[in-house]
Structures are given as structure tokens and as C-alpha cells.
Design a binder for these strands. Sequence first.
DNA 1: TTTGCTGCAAATAGTTTGCAGAGAC
DNA 2: GTCTCTGCAAACTATTTGCAGCAAA
Lengths: 147, 147
Amino acid sequence: MIESKKRFEIIIQKLRDEGHKITPQRMAIVKILSKSENHPSVEDIYDQIKEDFPTMSLATVYRNIVLIKSLGEVLELGFPDGSNRYDGNKPYPHPHVVCIQCKKIVDPDLGSLDNMTEEVAKETEFKILNHRLDFFGICKRCQAKKT
Amino acid sequence: MIESKKRFEIIIQKLRDEGHKITPQRMAIVKILSKSENHPSVEDIYDQIKEDFPTMSLATVYRNIVLIKSLGEVLELGFPDGSNRYDGNKPYPHPHVVCIQCKKIVDPDLGSLDNMTEEVAKETEFKILNHRLDFFGICKRCQAKKT
DNA sequence: TTTGCTGCAAATAGTTTGCAGAGAC
DNA sequence: GTCTCTGCAAACTATTTGCAGCAAA
């Protein structure tokens, strides 16, 4: 997918611009984040990279995610159950649909929440900076399995 | 507020019906949850109750929240930063507005998300069971403080 | 009296941090 | 050669659990 490659380049360039070194481990993490297939967890990233870098440490994954978050190039999706998933492909707020059985996460196409955001701002007198919208349910495949 | 008193009665009754004992500590926790002033955290609940019950244990707060959650009578609001807040006054999904400075949480009046939920269901072929919508920003008071 | 509840302390899980050596530039 | 980054292990924090005594019904 050519789009994720573009994301990869953007993030790497931004890291360079800010004076961070481009290590193989860092590149591997950015590569996975920029693709963000099915919104990986820290463990997902760690497991994938360990195949190429057997000495890879979980701490390194965490540290790089913190770094890339600080650049605003990855969206962190913390869930109520404590799990975290990441999206470096679309690092701006957008709705998600989560399968509570297989944990798959999908990005639906929805009209934006701009008008709702405005409504909230007016009513509560908050200055709204950000939002988060998730739907939870059961995906088609898991419905078929009818556990 | 008469409404929170009603919530208190409902939760206590449900606990009784399910065969749970009504201890003073439990009543104190239910009382705070049913009011849910500003959506308390576990620590908030613990601190409030410790004034009346100096021996109160955090574990007891956690255990009772788990119990009341299992009855569906409290809404758990886990946030990306790992913090948890609770709402036993309106224990069904509804949008929240969070001040990222003073951590205040407000319930805005918004049209429901029913049509959006339907749209998502149709597009993704998920069976949607639940949702979560939060807005993050700065409340009027914190804007005035202009840190 | 019976059974579940509480308080305490220890266990757990996910994430962060200190340090010394390795490696990018 | 310099200075950041990595791997390891220890530290941390929020939450859960085991156990013995206590108290609600």
C-alpha cells in the first residue's frame, strides 16, 4: 500500500528533523505504526519485530511510541479494559468500531462530528480540543461463528 | 437532590434482591456512586468514605465497584491515561465533556447517536452493542485562569 | 449460625526508568 | 568522538486476590 509508505517517510523525516537518530529498531517500529494494520497493540508490535530483532526489548517499543506520540504522528487508543492500540496511519481523531470478540478494529466512514463539537462547545462553554468516538459490537465474522 | 436518592434506593434494592449483604461500607459507596458528583474516581470515593470509616480499605472500594458494575448500575469511564471515573447516576452510555486541566467531567445535552449507530452498523456489518463518546477540552473556569 | 464481607498484605500486569554498553552520525 | 539509543532489570502504579476474623441476615 503506497499510502502507508508515505506515512513511513513522513514520520522518519520528522524524527530526523527533530534530531533523533534513525536506528533499525526505530525504523521497524515506525514501519508497523505507519501501516497500522488492524491497529496494533504494543505486544503486536513487539512480537512482529522480535522475528527480525530477537534482542528487541519491550521498553524500546514503549519509548519509541512515547516519542512518536510527542510528535503527534501516532494516535493512541486506550480502552476501558486497559488495553492500548495504536494508529500511525491516521494520527488524528476519528471514530472506531471495535469487535469485542476478536478485538478487530475498523475505521468506518462517517460524517464528521464538527457540528456536534460546536454544539457541545456552545452548551458547556468548554473550548473543545479533541474527541473520541468508539462503537463496540460484534463483527460479521464473529456473528457467523455464533459462539 | 431527590433523583440521586432514587438511584441509591434502586441500587440497594438490586443488591438485596441478588442476595448481597448491605454493610455500612457498601451503603457509603453506593451513596457516592448514586450521586456521582463530578464523576468520582476510586480514590475520590475512598477519600470521602475514610472520613466516616477510618479503617476503610481501597480493596473494598474496588470490590464493590466490580459488584455494582456486574449489576449494570454503574458506568465505568476508563480514560486513555489510565484513570477511571464512575457514574452511578446515569449508568448507560452517554457523551462526556472532560476538562484536561482540572479533570472536571460534565454531561452535555446532545441529540442521541442512534442514527449514527445505525449508519455504522450498515456500513461495517457489525452488530453494534455499545458506544463511547468523549470530548476533551478546557472548561470555562480553567480558560479564565489562563495558566 | 451461616455465609458473605472487610481489612490487610502480598501478588499481578502494564508501563516506566536507571544504568552501562552499543551504535548512529 | 560524541551523544543518543538500546537491552536488561528493577521500580512503579493501579488493581486484584488470599486469608483470617467480623458482621449482616
